[in-house]
């Protein structure tokens, strides 16, 4: 059990990557505050964790609301006496944000920045003092490969995720002496409910993603969960201010496979 006796707060944990992270944390021994806006789904995630013998509670949370965020951090400390790990997973983009900059409504820009940047800022701002009091902690922020390898028609999203990485590094620099580590995971394309807005024909979508990905398949949320467990655990004690790309090789370089695959003939 790699997160035994730790208490964690995971945002956006009612579905997709966040749910997978919360479940993996509980399996590794952590007590988890599952947070999100959908109480029914959140309670279902908690029920699943508890029925597998894990410890979890649900709390409704909009990460853009300062008072709600502070209350969620306080609730974690009240419930389990500590807060060791924060996972900034809640994120947003939608059909209205998928367009070039001059066509982006100002309200949509604000919405993306609010959820993807102000949210993690508020969560870290509330959590860091609690971590300092107990002698340290770990922050894991879920950014995106699009933070460092841009994509068309996503100006607000890519900017928000790039800013999240730099905020993560700032925390690493400013709170390293207090033994707080902060790292970011950069997921590639994953098979999650949030990804459903990117396609109409699922089979065609999966085939297309597979053809663009060196490892030949779309990501499974468990891969992000394992990465988060690693970065949250003491095995990563010397890792801070760093990024971990989990994308099947998508941004490592140009991928133009020959039909027959690379040659294995000897020189």
């Amino acid at each position: 059990m790699r997160l035994k006796d730790k208490a964690a707060l995971v945002t956006g944990a009612t579905a997709g990557l966040g749910q997978s992270i919360a479940e993996a944390f509980a399996r590794e021994g952590a007590a988890v505050l599952v947070t999100g806006r959908d109480a029914a789904r959140g309670e279902a995630v908690v029920e699943g964790i508890r029925s597998s013998g894990g410890r979890a509670r649900f709390r409704r949370l909009d990460v853009t609301a300062e008072e709600e965020v502070e209350a969620a951090v306080a609730a974690t400390v009240d419930e389990w006496g500590r807060l060791d790990v924060v996972v900034n997973n809640a994120g947003y983009y939608g059909p209205a944000s998928m367009r070039p900059l001059a066509e982006l409504p100002v309200a949509e820009w604000d919405r993306v920045i609010q959820v993807n940047l102000r949210g993690p800022f508020l969560v870290c701002r509330a959590a860091i003092p609690a971590m300092i009091r107990q002698g340290g902690g770990a922050i894991v922020s879920i950014a995106s490969i699009r933070a460092i390898h841009c994509s068309h028609n996503l100006p607000a999203y890519t900017a928000s995720k790039a800013a999240l990485i730099q905020m993560t590094k700032s925390i690493a620099l400013d709170y390293g002496a207090q033994n707080i580590r902060a790292n970011a995971i950069l997921p590639g394309v994953h098979d999650t409910p949030g990804g459903q807005q990117s396609y109409t024909d699922r089979e065609e979508y999966l085939r297309r993603i597979a053809s663009l990905t060196p490892l030949g398949r779309i990501g499974h949320p468990s891969g992000i969960a394992y990465a988060a467990v690693f970065l949250a655990s003491d095995e990563a004690a010397y890792i801070t201010g760093a990024t971990l790309v989990v994308d099947g090789g998508r941004i490592a370089g140009e991928y133009r496979p020959h039909r027959s695959g690379p040659s294995t003939r000897r020189a």
């Binding site: 590094k169 690493a172 620099l173 390293g176 580590r181 590639g188 060196p214 490892l215 398949r217 990501g219 499974h220 891969g223 990465a227 010397y238 890792i239 801070t240 201010g241 760093a242 990024t243 971990l244 790309v245 989990v246 994308d247 099947g248 090789g249 941004i251 490592a252 370089g253």
Partner: peptide
């Protein structure tokens, strides 16, 4: 599903 990545391990 992790390939092509470089992990910094340098205390920040």
């Amino acid at each position: 599903w992790v390939t092509g990545s470089t992990m910094w391990i340098d205390g920040g």
